[in-house]
Design a protein around this nucleic acid. Structure first.
Length: 108
DNA sequence: ACTTTGACTTGCA
DNA sequence: ATGCAAGCCAAAG
């Protein structure tokens, strides 16, 4: 299955702890595609367009901790609001990766 | 069927 | 330290 990695991404993103965030790079590396970070974003885009709303895409940020996909949400601020509601601290416009950066398990 | 872009990251110059 | 280029897989044009 070509979209096998998609399942991998969905599973990881869905496994993100409450009040934490992860980066595309870590997810990509966890699925076996280090440079496949763009796939993660693409997968989430497909998710956002699908009924995969169970995927906390708002917990997925770029390596800078910025909510890169916030603009793809129904509202760009809803993402930050949601993260703050989970107890995530914001450093200006980026998430406090120092404490909220969650690294996905390098599952097989 | 081929080409280009895409919610990114890392490496080299 | 900063700038440019390459890489990854998939989907849309």
């Amino acid at each position: 299955m070509a979209s096998d990695i998609y399942e991998r991404i969905y599973d990881i993103v869905r496994a993100v702890p409450h009040g934490k965030v992860t980066t595309y790079g870590h997810i990509a590396a966890a699925i076996g595609s280090r440079g496949g970070a763009r796939l993660v974003g693409w997968a989430l885009n497909a998710v956002a367009h699908s009924d995969r709303i169970d995927i906390p895409c708002h917990r997925v940020v770029n390596r800078l901790g910025e909510l890169s996909g916030k603009m793809h949400f129904e509202t760009p601020y809803v993402m930050r609001e949601r993260l703050e509601a989970e107890g995530v601290q914001f450093l200006g416009e980026a998430v406090d990766m120092r404490h909220h950066l969650w690294e996905p398990p390098t599952e097989a």
